[in-house]
């Protein structure tokens, strides 16, 4: 029962992340929504799998996957936002501030 609730919460977070991925205006905001919601949603699903299996081999595998996914997704998001800036993707129309422009020169 606990595992079903955790998985339902995870799918709900993933749903919000996908809505953000489709609705938000530029690359950086889409990356914000997608990284945060996708990572925590999938971590929640894996925690549900851990609760369902208990501490046998399958549960331990889900437990290992959580920190791997966490650090992998944050580092990949960091590399993507830096790569997109160097590629020349402009900040959106609503942006108010850009300190990074002077530092890259």
């Amino acid at each position: 029962m606990v595992s079903t609730i955790l998985i339902a919460i995870g799918v709900l977070f993933n749903l919000i992340g996908c809505i953000g991925l489709i609705r938000l205006p530029d690359v950086y905001n889409r990356l914000q929504s997608a990284t945060k919601c996708g990572t925590l949603g999938t971590c929640s699903i894996l925690a549900g799998a851990l609760f369902h299996f208990g501490f046998v081999d399958a549960g331990i595998k889900a437990l290992i996957a959580i920190p791997l996914l966490f650090f992998g997704a944050t580092a990949a998001a960091h590399a993507l936002v830096r790569g997109a800036y160097h590629f020349g993707v402009k900040l959106g129309d609503k942006s108010v501030k850009d300190d990074y422009k002077d530092a890259v020169k």
């Binding site: 938000l24 905001n29 609503k94 942006s95 501030k97 300190d99 990074y100 422009k101």
Partner: peptide, 10 residues
């Protein structure tokens, strides 16, 4: 209305 006001700060 999507209340966003993005920017890069230091």
């Amino acid at each position: 209305a999507m209340p966003i006001k993005p920017g890069i700060v230091k």
